[in-house]
């Protein structure tokens, strides 16, 4: 039980690192970037390449993925995304689906369609006993890294000059502009950091998430749920949303055949609930709190 909870938290925290960039960019520019997962995929594949083909240490792959995706994000933001800010949400959606298609096709062409397996360093393999629960060392590592990142982000957001400008810009872009804050530049930097985090998450998640060319599509719904449930005005909202989602998903997969006795009773073979938990969660949240679970006050 504790083990499942632990796995769920690890998964959730990973999800948070993957999705937080999307939340902030959405809150800042009201820009829907469905292709956010493509950056995570880039980070994942970079790790696979460096690790499996060139034997670079996994621990070095992580910062490499962070930097590479950060630069990739910055370049794409300046060249392509910047043209889309004043367009409709539909255009943004189409544009980012286009990017997804291009990324999927390119990765498929270059790396093949099969799922990639990463050989984790021996230090991260195996399990250990904590409080009577069996815990995967790798998942503990994920939790620690993501936890540190979260604390770092929260600190940067609440204590630094950039953070306060960013918060002002998210709160009300027009007012912030009026106060002389260069919102466009803040956005560029945030976009790059968000992409970098996604890349890091992708690299970190190579052992948990299944990495193949369809990655950006497969996880798109998860990111959307994190944003919709957690809101875009804080990072604590998406954080708790991610944890909730991660735990729910892992629990659902573990108790996949919970409906089997009921199915036997009514004489129908009921499907496992594992694939549906996150959607059930999504629907419940929408019915109970249409503005999102962790959103304060009215949403835009």
């Amino acid at each position: 039980m504790l083990t499942i909870l632990f796995d769920g938290v690890a998964y959730g925290m990973l999800l948070f690192v993957l999705a937080v960039g999307l939340c902030v960019t959405l809150g800042l520019m009201n820009f829907i970037n469905l292709a956010h997962g493509a950056f995570a995929m880039a980070g994942g594949y970079l790790t696979v390449l460096l690790l499996n083909r060139y034997g670079v240490s996994f621990y070095l792959c992580l910062p490499a993925a962070f930097i590479f995706c950060g630069i990739l994000g910055a370049v794409l933001e300046r060249t392509l995304y910047v043209r889309l800010y004043d367009k409709s949400h539909l255009d943004q959606v189409l544009f980012s689906i286009g990017l997804i298609f291009i990324s999927i096709a390119s990765v498929d062409y270059l790396m093949g369609a099969s799922q990639q397996i990463v050989n984790l360093p021996s230090g991260l393999q195996g399990r250990m006993e904590v409080l009577g629960a069996s815990i995967g060392v790798y998942r503990l590592f994920v939790i620690v890294i993501c936890g540190l990142l979260t604390i770092g982000l929260q600190y940067a957001l609440s204590k630094t000059r950039f953070g306060s400008r960013l918060r002002a810009a998210v709160d009300d872009g027009r007012v912030a502009r009026g106060m002389g804050i260069d919102v466009t530049r803040i956005f560029s930097v945030t976009f790059a950091i968000g992409s970098a985090l996604a890349g890091l998450g992708g690299a970190l998640g190579t052992g948990i998430l299944s990495l193949d060319p369809s990655f950006p599509l497969k996880y798109m719904i998860l990111f959307l749920i994190v944003v919709a449930v957690g809101g875009t005005s804080t990072i604590t909202g998406p954080f708790f949303a991610s944890i909730l989602l991660g735990v729910a998903d892992v629990f659902g997969k573990y108790y996949d055949n919970i409906l089997e006795p009921l199915g036997k009773l009514i004489g129908v073979e009921l499907p496992g609930i594992g694939a549906f938990t996150i959607y059930i969660l999504m629907v419940v949240v929408l019915i109970v709190r249409p503005q999102g679970l962790f959103v304060r006050g009215a949403s835009r």
């Binding site: 392509l80 043209r83 889309l84 367009k87 255009d91 189409l94 544009f95 689906i97 286009g98 990017l99 997804i100 298609f101 291009i102 990324s103 999927i104 096709a105 390119s106 498929d108 062409y109």
Partner: peptide, 17 residues
């Protein structure tokens, strides 16, 4: 097939822009 998806993506970008 990958070729198709790639160019579909490119056409989409051009269309939007």
């Amino acid at each position: 097939p990958q070729y198709w998806q790639f160019w579909l993506g490119v056409v989409l970008l051009l269309l939007v822009l």
